[in-house]
Design a protein around this nucleic acid. Structure first.
Lengths: 203, 203
DNA sequence: AGGCTATCTTGACGGTGTCAAGACTCAAAG
DNA sequence: CTTTGAGTCTTGACACCGTCAAGATAGCCT
């Protein structure tokens, strides 16, 4: 029986889960560029074609991995205290810091989640689409709630503002993660300004 | 002599330029993922190792290509009428539309210019670094000029605001180009909101 | 003419994703 | 208990990739 612990696995135990676990580790170490199915298979102690019985192709495996990321992201947004305190500025500032941290603490994961290889080159799985959009909507809803209270400029809609603010956050993370902006201190100030930008629209 | 037209080429004519021209075409057709040196060499009518006498490796060739992109970007910023009219809102709106168009008219080029493969994975050429930062600074200077006039919130600096606004634009382009946001109409509205966000800080 | 160097070529190696065909294992059906 | 059949894993093969190494070629300078 060895390492058998659950139903689904016959030979291995639960190869699918093991692959995802190892893939996450490999992603951290070698980045998305160094992630190869062959290397992954070897590290998991299985032959190169074994993963193909649990994922249609490399794209499907990466999609599953990204899905986990989006679930984490949604949880992060859930845990964020945003409109709880009486000062919306404080909450927004915290949230921006949390989002930046989520992206920069594990940059390869963020790159995978939002990167072109998944969304453009290889058509994203339906499951990935659903999970990702759930996180997006969750984000938009919470931020839109912030804007709901203040008086907005003529023609502004809370949802659109939330999306625009998300673009700002996403842009900051991308610039940081891709190594275009390197100076961390500068970026701290820039994100401060981004917060002010979002707050200015409120009054 | 055949196609000889300038000094540098001995056998071919000017292989370096021909490669860059063909690479740009290949980029449009097959995207950054489908771009391979072998295919490029074949299309240029030359053996697979020939490019290595003009570029140290694939990374160097792509860097040179991206450099051209940044020169184009700088020219685009130069041509943009931003603070010329008496209405700053109008100018900003136009500029945002121009930037979005630059990124989305030729998405593969934008992806190449700002993508991870060049900046993070393969160390960027010094020449690329210089050209890119020149464009960045040019952008920041012009936008900062806009903010210079209005009264800014306590602690805001024009440069930082310019950078933050650039992050917003960059984020929008990325979301659009990577296929995360698909609905063009929505994006139109979101970018409208982004403009309002930037304008709100002015008063 | 001789030599030098820039240029281009072919051969080879290790790496990749994945199609095809076989081998093994186990649960259920006869 | 035996047979079957689906689920799982394996090896072999193919086409593609970037690039190191070594050789062939072409044009300029002395």
């Amino acid at each position: 029986m060895a390492t058998h612990q659950d139903k689904p696995g016959y030979h291995h135990g639960d190869l699918r889960a093991a692959l995802l676990r190892e893939a996450d580790q490999l992603l951290r170490e070698d980045g998305i560029g160094g992630m190869s199915l062959r290397k992954l298979a070897e590290r998991t102690g299985v032959s190169r074609m074994a993963p193909y019985h649990h994922f249609r192709d490399k794209n499907a495996l990466l999609s599953a991995l990204a899905e986990e990321g989006f679930r984490d992201l949604k949880a992060m947004i859930d845990n964020a205290r945003l409109g709880t305190g009486n000062d919306p500025a404080e909450g927004l500032r915290d949230f921006v810091r949390d989002y930046l941290r989520f992206a920069t603490d594990h940059p390869e994961r963020y790159e995978l989640m939002f990167g072109r290889p998944l969304w453009k080159s290889g058509e994203p799985t339906d499951a990935l689409r659903d999970t990702a959009f759930a996180a997006f909507r969750h984000y938009a809803d919470r931020i839109a709630g912030l804007f709901q209270n203040g008086t907005l400029p003529e023609g502004s809609k809370p949802l659109r503002l939330a999306q625009a603010s998300w673009a700002t956050l996403h842009g900051l993370c991308k610039l940081l993660n891709d190594g275009i902006y390197v100076d961390r201190q500068d970026m701290e100030e820039v994100s401060e300004e981004a917060v002010r930008l979002m707050l200015a629209v409120l009054r």
